[in-house]
């Protein structure tokens, strides 16, 4: 069965004299490399210049707040259940009356941790969440680090910054 018309029939013929002295092939090859000298370079000068990321790129997680600035997550654990890499752990707690402005639901996540070394950035947590609380950002990636501990992201690094929401 032929899937593409790229197939080329190769026969093993003895090399001709011109092929055996290599020179024509060498000259041709040098011509090719020389032409590349003047081609556009593919390099992206990273820190100054960034490659545009896809709209749907799945990068670092963020725990969203609602319009009033309260955390949306209700610690239902569905994201942890959905996670194929078992990267998410959390401890639930009951909301105190005076914390009403901080958490939207009556139950909230006291501890919420994602292990970025385990995470495969599949985005299933985002899809599982009934409260639209967790999202994978398309402009941020989990940064590199020397310590394993640094890859366990707690709420301090996951929850959307408060001030940003206000402005």
């Amino acid at each position: 069965m032929q899937l593409t018309n790229k197939r080329k029939h190769m026969a093993r013929k003895p090399m001709t004299f011109l092929e055996r002295i290599y020179l024509p092939a060498i000259v041709k090859g040098m011509g090719i490399t020389l032409s590349h000298l003047f081609k556009k370079k593919a390099t992206i000068q990273y820190p100054e210049q960034k490659r545009p990321m896809s709209e749907v790129f799945r990068g670092l997680h963020i725990l969203k707040r609602d319009d009033q600035g309260a955390e949306r997550c209700t610690a239902c654990g569905l994201c942890a259940l959905a996670c194929p890499a078992e990267a998410i752990t959390m401890t639930a707690a009951e909301r105190k009356p005076q914390d009403k402005h901080l958490y939207r639901e009556e139950k909230y996540a006291e501890v919420y941790e994602i292990n970025m070394l385990r995470c495969i950035f599949c985005g299933l947590c985002e899809e599982a969440c009934p409260k639209a609380a967790i999202f994978l950002q398309n402009d941020k990636m989990a940064p590199a680090s020397y310590e394993r501990e640094d890859f366990i992201f707690g709420k301090d690094r996951l929850v959307e910054p408060f001030l940003l929401k206000k402005s």
Binding site: T33, L34, H36, L37, K39, K41, A42, T43
Partner: peptide
């Protein structure tokens, strides 16, 4: 530099 330029790098 030559190596890079021949390979479309900088």
């Amino acid at each position: 530099k030559v190596a890079a330029f021949l390979q479309d790098r900088l």
